[in-house]
Amino acid sequence: MSIEVNGKVFETDEEGYLADLNQWEPDVATAMAKEEGNELTDAHWEVINFLREYYEEYQIAPAVRVLTKAIGKKLGKDKGNSKYLYELFPYGPAKQACKYAGLPKPTGCV
């Protein structure tokens, strides 16, 4: 499978996760969201950028519980809860946001 963005083809796995996270660019996230009928707001980008930083540091995509806690620490209590994150990413914040961020599917994702 693949996704085409700005004339460039990006390879993905069967669930739509980017094959090579180093290829990621912001327009990939925008295109993936659009395919699923979503438009990315600043609030979405905050989470996507957070995930990319998390991966850079730890080399994994965080489980949803870990993501929620870490977002709360970094961006404030009002954002560090499941309700806020599920409203932004209804298919599951870890799964959907990780996909947009070009990360692999989180290990043990719930």
Partner: peptide, 11 residues
């Protein structure tokens, strides 16, 4: 490590 992360995700 992967199994540990799964166990930890399930608290």
């Amino acid at each position: 490590l992967e199994v540990v992360l799964i166990a930890a995700a399930f608290e």
